[in-house]
């Protein structure tokens, strides 16, 4: 636990889909080099909040928000800020693995390439795949299609692809929900090794997963942030009744 300065902070963030309010006044802090889990029953607004953090919600026309989101103290919805710059710093891994329909190699270098970054491709590919614990499995077929990989491998490729951009933050939106238990445990292992270099926010509906891999847990319920705490204490001694009900499986 290195710093007390939050890398990401939301201030009274409320979000509407059309007329429907999906998120109500959420103030949340994510700290550097920690894994923060965001948990809660489905439809509680956790994914919506996560997707605000790298402005992936810009593409949903009916969505509207109030409140501020600061990254390193900077308002990311400031008109002068280019969302593309933001997404270079804040990468994202999605619910379903979505590698590009290209070779493994091209998947890794696509981001740096379109962003005009300077890179040495062979080294970048090897380094990113190693960090994503995928290198040994694919080093002999870097130029074959990424779609031929298994679901778990595809998801680790998506993580490798994100790492290749060297972001500060990696957002993960239920990255294991489409995977089997073995693939899931590999990704979980990977996440714990990534914490040293990156700040990670992971949305999950799987409480065991949150308790295994995260340092801090945020519990969302019906669009509100109910409770935040160190993972250990939140799961053992929740202060809120609703948190307790949820983690003991009384609903959700």
């Amino acid at each position: 636990m290195t710093s007390n300065q939050p890398i990401i902070e939301t201030q009274n963030l409320s979000i509407w889909y059309g007329e429907k309010k999906a998120v109500n006044s959420v103030s949340m802090k994510l700290f550097k080099n920690r894994v923060s889990a965001i948990i809660g029953p489905s439809g509680c607004g956790k994914s919506t909040v996560l997707r605000m953090l790298n402005r992936m919600n810009d593409f949903i026309e009916v969505l509207r928000h109030e409140g501020k989101i600061l990254i390193n103290g900077q308002d990311i919805y400031n008109k002068k800020l280019d969302p593309v710059d933001l997404r270079r710093k804040v990468g994202m891994v999605f619910q379903r693995p979505n590698p590009f329909p290209k070779s493994i190699y091209k998947n890794i270098i696509w981001g740096p390439k379109v962003n005009g970054l300077k890179y040495e491709p062979d080294f970048l590919v090897e380094d990113s795949l190693k960090k994503a614990a995928l290198w040994d499995e694919v080093k002999d077929r870097l130029h074959s299609s990424a779609l031929a990989l298994s679901g778990g491998q595809q998801q680790r490729l998506c993580i490798a692809r994100t790492i290749a951009m060297n972001p500060e933050v990696i957002l993960m939106d239920e990255p294991c929900s489409a995977l089997d238990p073995r693939a899931t445990s590999k990704i979980e292992e990977l996440i714990t090794t990534l914490r040293d270099e990156y700040t990670i926010a992971i949305v999950t509906h799987n409480m065991q997963q949150a308790s295994r891999i995260s340092d801090v847990t945020h519990f969302f319920y019906e669009g509100e942030l109910i409770e935040t705490g160190l993972t250990e204490s939140l799961f053992t001694k929740p202060t809120e009744k609703r948190t307790e009900d949820y983690i003991t499986g009384r609903f959700g």
Binding site: N54, M56, F59, V84, D85, R87, R88, G91, M92, F94, R96, N98, P99, F100, P101, W110, G111, V114, N115, C158, R161, T162, M165
Partner: peptide, 11 residues
């Protein structure tokens, strides 16, 4: 999902 993946890479 393909469009999202590309945007998330800063394209």
């Amino acid at each position: 999902s393909l469009r999202e993946a590309a945007y998330a890479m800063g394209a």
